[in-house]
Simulated assay, not measured.
Amino acid sequence: MNLKIYNEKIRLLDPICLPIFKKNGSTGVLLIHGFTGSPHDMNYLADRLYQSGFTVSVPRLPGHGTSHKDFLNSKWKDWLRRSIDAYIDLTIHCDKIYVVGLSMGALLATIVAARFKSPKLVLAAPAFQVTDKRLPLTPLMSLFVSYTRKEPPNFEDASLNKLAQEYWNKIFIKPAAQLYRLQRTAIEHLEMVQSETLVIVTQKDNSVPMSVLDIIRSRLKNQFKTVVLEKSAHPVTNDIEKELVAEKILEFFAQ
């Protein structure tokens, strides 16, 4: 990308979409947001981890937080490359690095943790399985349509409304096909994970079913710890039980 265009995109980024990096202790935590999300989804957890002595990094994945046109031009390997780069950047500052991923970010976190043998891995609402049965069809559907429109949610926060108009008023077929490819790759990498693993799921998740635990159980060689939430919707790191999620992750890291 032309440097001038890149700088202009960064200038136009809403502050809630900016990457987060906070240096504290010698243990780092890489936090990876989800599909159509942004670093904002990890902001509360990043603050809690930083206050508890961790160095934290929340990269903004390519195509996210800017515009739906950027999103349509991004691919799963772009998202993975940014996640890997953020992990490598943390190695400059930290002796060891834990990885946390939300939804699609959990797929990326799995691949990163497997490749770098991260000591600890947290999979929050991990999208190894989704409730939308059309996902396997998206590689074919994407040949004919990039997205379809839907009614966007409405927020009091102007920044969230801006994101809603770009990302949450559409069903993205082309990027969903990339998500499906990433999903297949991440499931294969589950067998390579050596990390101690914490899986967080919620009973009210409309995107990822509870049966995702069966996929993880069948592929992951090590036993894993599970937290089952009762009130949260899909974005568990930024929803009604975010305090509990942060506490459970901090407990897991302290063990």
Rank of each mutant, 00 (worst) to 15 (best):
88 I>Q: 13
140 L>F: 15
47 D>N: 15
150 K>F: 00
67 S>V: 03
142 S>C: 08
161 N>F: 01
185 T>C: 09
143 L>C: 09
139 P>V: 05
183 Q>D: 11
53 G>C: 08
135 L>N: 02
62 P>M: 08
151 E>A: 15
47 D>Q: 14
116 F>S: 05
127 A>P: 08
103 S>P: 02
169 N>R: 15
162 K>N: 15
143 L>E: 03
141 M>C: 06
121 L>V: 11
115 R>N: 13
93 H>S: 13
130 V>W: 01
99 V>T: 09
133 K>C: 05
152 P>H: 12
59 P>H: 09
52 S>L: 05
183 Q>R: 13
45 L>D: 05
65 G>N: 10
109 A>R: 00
56 V>W: 11
125 A>K: 06
72 L>F: 03
139 P>F: 04
90 L>Y: 06
46 A>Y: 04
70 D>H: 10
135 L>H: 04
158 A>W: 06
162 K>F: 10
167 Y>N: 01
87 Y>W: 06
180 Y>K: 04
85 D>V: 12
166 E>N: 07
145 V>A: 08
65 G>Q: 07
140 L>S: 14
124 A>M: 08
139 P>H: 06
119 P>T: 04
169 N>M: 11
143 L>G: 00
156 E>N: 13
172 F>S: 06
142 S>M: 02
165 Q>P: 00
153 P>S: 12
160 L>G: 01
106 A>E: 01
106 A>C: 03
106 A>M: 01
126 P>E: 07
58 V>C: 11
44 Y>T: 03
100 V>H: 02
83 S>K: 01
126 P>N: 10
102 L>V: 03
43 N>L: 13
138 T>A: 05
136 P>Y: 02
93 H>P: 01
156 E>Q: 09
119 P>A: 07
167 Y>I: 00
181 R>T: 12
123 L>V: 07
166 E>D: 08
130 V>L: 13
162 K>C: 04
75 K>H: 14
152 P>E: 09
82 R>S: 09
116 F>T: 11
180 Y>M: 06
60 R>I: 03
92 I>F: 15
64 H>D: 05
133 K>D: 14
146 S>V: 05
83 S>F: 02
75 K>M: 07
171 I>K: 14
79 W>H: 09
147 Y>A: 10
120 K>E: 14
105 G>M: 08
182 L>C: 12
81 R>I: 04
114 A>H: 08
179 L>R: 02
183 Q>P: 06
74 S>Y: 03
173 I>H: 05
158 A>P: 15
141 M>F: 13
141 M>D: 09
46 A>S: 15
183 Q>E: 12
166 E>Y: 00
181 R>D: 10
96 K>N: 14
68 H>Y: 14
51 Q>P: 00
107 L>N: 15
131 T>Y: 00
138 T>L: 08
181 R>G: 10
154 N>S: 15
49 L>N: 00
173 I>L: 14
108 L>G: 07
65 G>A: 10
133 K>V: 14
123 L>P: 06
178 Q>M: 09
169 N>D: 11
41 D>T: 10
61 L>S: 04
57 S>G: 07
98 Y>W: 12
100 V>Y: 02
148 T>A: 05
104 M>W: 01
174 K>P: 00
128 F>P: 00
68 H>V: 02
56 V>I: 10
146 S>L: 11
68 H>I: 03
85 D>Q: 13
60 R>E: 00
50 Y>C: 13
